[in-house]
């Protein structure tokens, strides 16, 4: 049994050959196969090494340092108390009310924001893939949310959402959706959704660009054949577009999930985590503990928990990718 994602990976024309190569089967494929399967081939490693060295030095080393801190009592202003405490920080988090609130909010935040971004991004990409005279302009303009620095995005949305002077309230009242102004960011029930809208705005162009690029890999002939067979628009979408874009979409979702989970500048500027703890997410809580409490031990622990949660969230996807690769 081939999994679905593998079946769509090699695009049509190459499908037959590449399957043969994967299995190392036919004589014909063996020739080229040598290039890919030669034992102790250092070539792939040499291609990989620049990225690996860079990432190790600049990211992995600081990360291992922070990981180490998570097992320590490490409050910056108490240098005399720095000590190894094993799992004490981890246990402490499990009994911390704010930790659990943050975990809950992190799930809502990540799933909600990604769903909104993918949906809007996909629709936008499909439209922008069609030909019309102002396509170039539209493609450029939808990039604006993405290129606006976060501090501006956050402040702009905060003022547009303001309960006294906000333009969004004014528009909604004028259009008849609301009877009176709503203090969006001042209520626990509406603060998180409001911030999520702001992040959806900032992030959907990313998906549009990535999906747009992915759509280019679909050979036009497929649609022509389908049309000859009398396929409807939605059939073409579900049978051709979606499956063929899926691998790239999944990768984009995977990477963006990690990014969204970690993003805290918009939340911090818009609500500072409030009202109450209603917009606390794990990275925000970790940041607050680190830089206002200077408790880097506990903050690192919270960050490790975030990593664990993320690994769980994406495990299903990674396992599938890895299993597919095993078949190669």
């Amino acid at each position: 049994m081939k999994s679905r994602s593998q079946a769509v990976l090699p695009v049509l024309k190459g499908k037959k050959e590449s399957r043969l190569i994967e299995r190392g089967g036919s004589e014909n494929a063996d020739m080229s196969n040598q290039h890919y399967k030669r034992k102790r081939d250092l070539y792939p490693y040499s291609l990989l090494s620049p990225a690996l060295i860079g990432a190790t030095l600049i990211i992995l080393v600081p990360m291992l340092f922070a990981l180490g801190l998570s097992f320590m009592n490490y409050v910056l202003y108490r240098p005399q108390d720095h000590a190894f405490v094993a799992l004490q920080n981890y246990r402490r988090a499990l009994g911390d009310e704010i930790f659990w609130l943050s975990v809950r909010n992190t799930f809502i935040w990540v799933i909600g924001v990604i769903a909104l971004q993918v949906l809007l991004g996909f629709i936008t990409a499909l439209f922008l893939n069609r030909r019309f005279w102002w396509r170039g302009i539209a493609r450029s303009l939808i990039l604006i949310p993405w290129v606006t620095p976060s501090v501006i995005t956050a402040l702009m949305w905060r003022f547009m959402l303001d309960g006294n002077t906000g333009v969004i309230n004014d528009l909604l009242v004028r259009l008849g959706f609301l009877n009176e102004y709503v203090p969006w960011l001042a209520r626990s029930s509406s603060a998180l959704p409001s911030v999520m809208i702001a992040l959806m705005w900032q992030g959907f162009p990313f998906f549009s660009v990535m999906i747009l690029a992915g759509l280019q890999a679909i050979p036009q002939e497929l649609y022509e054949v389908a049309e000859v067979d009398g396929a409807k628009v939605h059939q073409k979408f579900y049978r051709i577009t979606l499956p063929l874009v899926m691998p790239i979409l999944l990768t984009a979702v995977l990477l963006r999930t990690i990014w969204v989970a970690n993003s805290l500048d918009i939340i911090f500027i818009m609500t500072g985590g409030g009202p109450g703890y209603s917009t606390y997410t794990l990275p925000l809580y970790s940041y607050i503990r680190a830089y206002s409490g200077l408790d880097f031990g506990y903050a690192s622990t919270l960050a490790v928990y975030l990593t664990i949660i993320l690994v769980m969230l994406i495990a299903a996807y990674v396992i599938r990718v890895m299993r597919t690769e095993d078949l190669h």
Binding site: A55, I59, L60, V61, P62, M63, F65, A66, L254, L255, I258, W259, A261, N262, L264, P283, S286, Y287, A290, Y291, F296, A299, S300, A303, L306, T307, L310, V311, I314, V318
Partner: peptide, 14 residues
Amino acid sequence: LVINMFPVVLLLIP
């Protein structure tokens, strides 16, 4: 993938 999962604010000092 995993090195991308850590909040960067905690990596600033090192």
